[in-house]
C-alpha cells in the first residue's frame, strides 16, 4: 500500500475520532435516566421477571426478539444454501485421515458433556431470575452438542430435519407471543393478566425462554454441522 493512501486513511480516521469526541460532549444533554427508572419501578410488576434485561427482550421489546430469531433462521438457510452441492449423497471419502482425536481428550469430553448440557438448561430456565436466558443458554447447549463431534467423529447428522424443527419452533414462538391478543387485547406481551401472581407470569417467561433457547441451539448446531460437512 502506498504512503499517500496511508496518509489519507489516517486523516479520515482521525476526523472520525474528532467527530466522536465532539458528539460525546453532548451526551449529558441527550441521555436521561427516565427509562432505567421506569424499568426499576414497574419492571417486576408488569412482566414478572426479576432480570430486567430478560424483561425487555421477552416483554417490552418482544417484537425485536422475534425478528432477531427470524434473521437467525434466514442466515442458517443461507449457509445451507451456499454449502449445498448439486450431486448429493456422494460425499467423498479421503485416503489420508490425519485428524485423529487423542484418547485422553475423548474421555474428558465424555465427562464434560452432561455437565455442560445441564448448565445450559439451568441458564435457560433461570433466565428470568438471574443473568442468562434463551440466547445465552442456547449458545451453551450448542457448545455442549459440539463436544459430541469430538467423541464420535463419524457422527451422521440430518441437517434437513434440524432446520425443519427450527422452523416449527419459530412458528410456535410467534403463536405463543400472539396469544396475548385474546387475553389482554395487545400483541406481543405476556398472556397472563396484569394482576396475576409472579408464579403465573413466570410460566410464560420460562416457556418463551425455552423455545428461544432451543431455536438458538439448533441454529448454531446447523451452522457448525454445515462447516464440518463442507468439502467432505
Amino acid at each position: 500500500m502506498s504512503v499517500s493512501k496511508n496518509i489519507i486513511l489516517f486523516a479520515l480516521l482521525s476526523v472520525l475520532l474528532i467527530v466522536f469526541m465532539l458528539a460525546m460532549q453532548d451526551l449529558d444533554v441527550l441521555y436521561n435516566s427516565y427509562g432505567r427508572d421506569y424499568y426499576l419501578l414497574y419492571g417486576l410488576e408488569e412482566t414478572g421477571s426479576r432480570n430486567l434485561v430478560s424483561a425487555i427482550y421477552l416483554d417490552y421489546r418482544l417484537f425485536d426478539s422475534l425478528f432477531e430469531a427470524g434473521i437467525l433462521l434466514i442466515a442458517v438457510s443461507g449457509i445451507i444454501w451456499i454449502s449445498k452441492h448439486d450431486i448429493e449423497e456422494k460425499n467423498a471419502k479421503f485416503m489420508i485421515d490425519k485428524y485423529k482425536t487423542p484418547d485422553l481428550f475423548v474421555t474428558f469430553s465424555r465427562l464434560v458433556y452432561p455437565l455442560m448440557l445441564t448448565f445450559g438448561f439451568y441458564v435457560i430456565i433461570n433466565g428470568h431470575l438471574s443473568p442468562g436466558g434463551g440466547f445465552q443458554g442456547g449458545a451453551i447447549v450448542a457448545t455442549a452438542i459440539l463436544i459430541l463431534y469430538y467423541i464420535d467423529s463419524e457422527r451422521e447428522t440430518n441437517i434437513g430435519l434440524i432446520v425443519t424443527i427450527e422452523k416449527y419452533i419459530f412458528m410456535t414462538i410467534i403463536v405463543l407471543a400472539s396469544i396475548s391478543l385474546f387475553t389482554r387485547g395487545t400483541f406481543f406481551t405476556n398472556f397472563m393478566p396484569l394482576d396475576a401472581s409472579l408464579q403465573m407470569k413466570s410460566i410464560y417467561l420460562v416457556l418463551l425462554n425455552l423455545l428461544i433457547g432451543f431455536k438458538v441451539a439448533l441454529g448454531l448446531w446447523t451452522i457448525f454441522t454445515a462447516f464440518l460437512k463442507e468439502g467432505r
Partner: peptide, 17 residues
C-alpha cells in the same frame, strides 16, 4: 439505582446475529 438495561438487551441479540 441500576444501569440502563435497554442497551444490554439489544447487544445480546447483536452478538447472536
Amino acid at each position: 439505582s441500576i444501569v440502563d438495561p435497554l442497551p444490554q438487551a439489544l447487544m445480546i441479540t447483536t452478538i447472536v446475529i
